[in-house]
Computed example of a mutant assay.
Amino acid sequence: MGPMVTGTPDAATRVPFVDLGAMTHDVRAEVDAGWCDLLERSDFVGGESVERFERAWASYCGTDEAVAVANGTDALLLTLRGLGIGPGDEVVVPANTFVATVEAVVLAGAIPRFADVDPATALLTPATLADALTPRTAAVLVVHLYGQPADMDALGEVAARAGVMVVEDAAQAHGATWRGRRAGSMGRAGCFSFYPGKNLGAFGDAGAVVTSDPALADVLRSLRNHGRIPGAHARHGLLVGTNSRMDTLQASVLAAKLARLDGWNAARRRIVERYRSALPPALARMIAVAPGAESVHHLAVLVTTDRDALRAGLAERGVESGLHYPVPCHRQAPYRRHSDRALPVCEALADQVVSLPLFPHMTGDQVEAVCRALHECGEERG
Rank of each mutant, 00 (worst) to 15 (best):
P230A: 03
A284C: 10
D351S: 14
D153A: 11
D205A: 12
D205V: 08
I111M: 11
R81T: 12
D131G: 12
S59F: 00
T63M: 08
V296N: 03
A150L: 06
Y195M: 09
D351R: 15
H375L: 11
V296R: 02
V289S: 05
E380S: 11
N199P: 14
H338L: 03
L78D: 03
A130P: 00
L249I: 09
E380G: 00
R245Y: 00
R221S: 05
A183M: 04
R182L: 05
R179C: 09
G21Y: 07
A288Y: 00
L239E: 14
H298E: 13
A68F: 03
T24W: 12
R311M: 15
R311G: 14
F44R: 14
V353N: 14
Y335E: 00
D340P: 00
T24A: 13
D43G: 00
F17T: 07
R224H: 08
S42M: 11
A100T: 14
A290H: 09
L279Q: 07
V15C: 11
R341Y: 02
A176W: 05
A12F: 06
D32V: 12
P87N: 04
E380F: 08
V5L: 14
A255L: 15
E103S: 10
I85G: 03
Y60F: 15
R228S: 08
A104L: 05
A132K: 01
R260L: 15
H226Y: 12
G364Y: 03
L310H: 10
A208T: 04
Q332L: 13
H144C: 11
M152G: 09
R182Y: 06
F192Q: 05
A173Q: 03
R136S: 13
A293T: 07
A22T: 09
R235E: 14
D247M: 10
E51W: 09
D205R: 09
Q250V: 00
D26P: 00
R14W: 02
S277C: 08
G2Q: 11
R52E: 15
T304E: 04
P9E: 11
G382A: 14
L141R: 04
G322T: 04
T121A: 06
